[in-house]
Each structure stands twice: as C-alpha cells, then as structure tokens.
Nucleic acid binder design. Structure first.
Lengths: 145, 145
DNA sequence: CTTGATGCAAAGGGTTTGCACCATC
DNA sequence: GATGGTGCAAACCCTTTGCATCAAG
C-alpha cells in the first residue's frame, strides 16, 4: 500500500513525503472521511499538518487513483481508499445512515448508459432517499435537506 | 402552476409573495439553475430581489414539493421544477455535458434498494462519468475533479 | 542544488443568520 | 394589526491561492 504510494508518486515525478503517507493512512483508517476529519486524524498522530496540505494531498492521491471522493451530504465531500471494493453509497436523508452496496447493484444502470458510450464512475455515486427504519418511524416528519 | 403555489402555501399557513412567484417561475424557465442563476433571472425581470430570499424561497419551494435540487458539479446545486418528468442526471466530468435519462433507467436499482425498504430519491440522483465523445477524443487527458 | 512540497495567511465562493422593517392575510 | 417575509450586512463553512521557506531526490 504505502509501497504503492511511493511507486505511483515516483512514476509522476512527485515526491514521497511524511504528510502524504500520513494522509493516505488516515483515509484508509477512517473509511469515509471529510478533509477536516482527515486533518484531525493526522493531527492526532503527528503535531503539525496544514489544512491546505490535506486538500492538496487528497487531490494528488485521487489523481494517482489511491483514493476517491463522493458526496454524502450537502456539505464537505468524503474520501475513501480505493483498496476497498468498488461500491455505491446509499444515504438516508433522515437519519444520515450510509450503507454501501456492491457495484453490481447498479450493473443494469451501468449497462444502459454504457450502451450510449457513457462510462459510469461507480465509486462517486451516492444514492439519496429514505431508509426502511425512517419510513416506518417518521411517518409525518418533514425531510431535512 | 402558480395556482399550485398559492394553494400549497396556504395549506402550510405560508404567504404568497411576488418574490416566491418570480423565483418559482424562474426555475421553471431555466430548467436547471443554481441559486445564483435564479437570482439573475429574477432580477432580469424585476429589480430588487435579495440572494437570501432566493435561498430561503428555494428551500420553501422544495419543502412544498414544487422544485427539487441535485448536484451536477462540486459547486452550487441546481434546482429544477417538479413539473418536469422525473429524471436522472448523467454528467460528463470532462465536458460537463448533462443528459437526462428517464427514471426507468434506474428502475432495477430502485427495485433492488426497495427490496431493503429503501426509497430512492430519483430526482436527486446524479451519475458522473465520461461520455462517449470524451472517451474517444481525450484519450490521455487527466480528468478534472 | 533543483524543483516540488509545505505552512501560513489572506482571499474566495457559496450559504446562513440576526435583526429591523415591510406586507400579506 | 399580527405574524410571516424580505433586505441588508455580517458571519460562516469549506476551499483555494500566493508566496516564502523547506526538504526530497
């Protein structure tokens, strides 16, 4: 993994730095995390890392294909490691629960768009709606967002 | 339509104002528009409307079920009228082209999640990826965002 | 020792909020 | 005329950028 990082960076003439290693590790540890959460996680281990470095590094890591981002809320995006299986995020608007579904849940969609030559970015997909629990419970509460 | 607005507002004990009518009309005219674009459109017809009013009104209109929003970029959300057929947005990351697909493109997905009791918010769905033209053309250009 | 990476601080886009005034019902 | 709506300005969150300094290769 961190080997991967070193290799891929070198391929692009980029440099391996402690920050980059720490940020990648933080994303892997956190599962799904916003830049802010990544920063906090890194700082919990090492003292000084700068927010701008987190933003810049997440961008680099995404270009290298080591992390991906998606939007699980109307706020900050969340990053996850590509070592996880490719998956689709399903988010309940009411309780904010996030479930991951295997990529083949969207296979028909991918196929349909593929017929038009469109390549779906599966990992970025976030499906919003209302989960079973909330549909049952909150019969008449106005949905947030 | 504007009848709908008046009715639904009244049902909630809310008031019908010129701003609300103008903003709803702007969304209908524009198809897909960010709050900023809605503001511009409204201002092109009437002089003074405030950005905060646009934000507040779009929120109200969405609660009333008259408009919906989705995220077609990493920037501002876009709003569209619910008088349009329910549709899914498909966005090319490279050329930013947006195509709408009929809701039944995601019928299998909706069914699969429905089996788990999850109700998909179809109108909010934005599928990112790369379109046919771009896949052909930009063979080796790094994808933005 | 060259060039890419970092930290810092300031600026930027987009959105929200508090409050006084205004207008719908 | 009571209460909800609007405008205005300030605050806010998240992110980007310019620049001087630092360090990986």
């Amino acid at each position: 993994m961190s080997d991967d990082l070193a290799t891929r960076l070198r391929e692009q003439g980029l440099r391996l730095t402690p920050q980059r290693q720490l940020i990648l590790r933080a994303v892997e540890e956190l599962g799904h995390a916003t830049p802010d959460e990544v920063l906090a996680q890194v700082r919990s281990q090492v003292s000084s890392v700068n927010p701008s470095t987190v933003y810049r590094t997440l961008e680099v890591l995404e270009e290298l294909g080591l992390v991906r981002h998606t939007h699980l809320s109307d706020r900050a995006p969340t990053y996850h490691s590509t070592t996880e299986h490719e998956h689709v995020h399903v988010v309940c608007r009411r309780c904010h629960a996030v479930r991951s579904y295997d990529a083949d849940a969207v296979a028909p969609l991918v196929a349909a768009l593929g017929a038009d030559g469109f390549t779906v970015d599966i990992g970025h997909l976030a499906v919003f709606g209302e989960c079973a629990d909330c549909s049952a419970t909150a019969a008449a509460t106005p949905p947030p967002t």
